[in-house]
Amino acid sequence: MITRRSALMAAVATSALVAGPALAEDPIKIGNVMPYSGPASAYGTIGKTINAYIEMTNAKGGVNGRQIEFISYDDGYSPPKMVEQVRRLVEQDEVTALFQTLGTPTNTAIHKYINAKRVPHLFLATGAAKWDDPENFPMTMGWQPSYVVEAKIYAKYIMDNMPDAKVAMLYQNDDFGKDYYNGFKEGLGDKVDMLVAEAPYEVAAPTVDSEVINLKASGADVFIIIATPKFAAQAIKKSAEIGWEAQRFLTNVSLSVGGVLKPAGFEASKGIISAGYLMEEGDAQFADSPELLEWREFMAEWYPEGDVTSSFTVFGYSVGATIVHTLEMAGDDLSREGILAAAASLKDYDAPLLLPGILINTAEDDFAPIEAMQLQKFDGESWKRFGEVITVD
Rank of each mutant, 00 (worst) to 15 (best):
residue 337 E to L: 05
residue 49 T to V: 09
residue 389 V to P: 11
residue 106 T to R: 01
residue 157 Y to M: 10
residue 214 N to Q: 14
residue 111 H to C: 02
residue 127 G to V: 02
residue 173 N to W: 03
residue 211 E to R: 12
residue 293 L to K: 15
residue 306 G to N: 06
residue 192 V to H: 04
residue 271 G to I: 12
residue 277 Y to N: 01
residue 121 H to Y: 15
residue 359 L to A: 08
residue 337 E to P: 07
residue 95 V to S: 10
residue 75 D to H: 14
residue 309 T to A: 10
residue 235 A to K: 08
residue 149 V to L: 09
residue 247 Q to V: 13
residue 123 F to N: 07
residue 301 E to C: 01
residue 77 Y to H: 04
residue 74 D to M: 07
residue 108 T to M: 12
residue 169 M to E: 09
residue 166 K to C: 00
residue 23 L to V: 03
residue 370 I to N: 03
residue 7 A to L: 00
residue 98 L to Q: 10
residue 387 G to D: 11
residue 239 S to L: 08
residue 15 S to A: 13
residue 318 S to Y: 10
residue 291 E to D: 14
residue 359 L to Q: 11
residue 199 A to S: 15
residue 173 N to G: 03
residue 238 K to S: 02
residue 194 M to A: 12
residue 180 Y to E: 01
residue 321 A to P: 00
residue 247 Q to A: 09
residue 281 E to Q: 11
residue 28 I to Q: 07
residue 66 R to L: 06
residue 62 G to V: 12
residue 323 I to S: 04
residue 351 A to M: 12
residue 156 K to V: 05
residue 391 T to S: 14
residue 188 L to A: 03
residue 362 T to F: 11
residue 359 L to Y: 13
residue 261 L to I: 10
residue 284 A to H: 12
residue 80 P to Y: 12
residue 236 I to G: 00
residue 89 L to S: 09
residue 381 E to Y: 03
residue 193 D to E: 15
residue 103 G to R: 05
residue 125 A to C: 14
residue 70 F to P: 02
residue 91 E to T: 02
residue 295 W to L: 10
residue 331 G to Y: 04
residue 92 Q to D: 13
residue 208 V to W: 06
residue 109 A to H: 12
residue 252 N to Y: 08
residue 355 L to W: 10
residue 173 N to E: 13
residue 76 G to E: 07
residue 141 M to K: 08
residue 271 G to D: 07
residue 217 A to I: 06
residue 124 L to S: 05
residue 333 D to H: 07
residue 175 D to E: 14
residue 265 G to T: 10
residue 40 A to Y: 04
residue 92 Q to M: 04
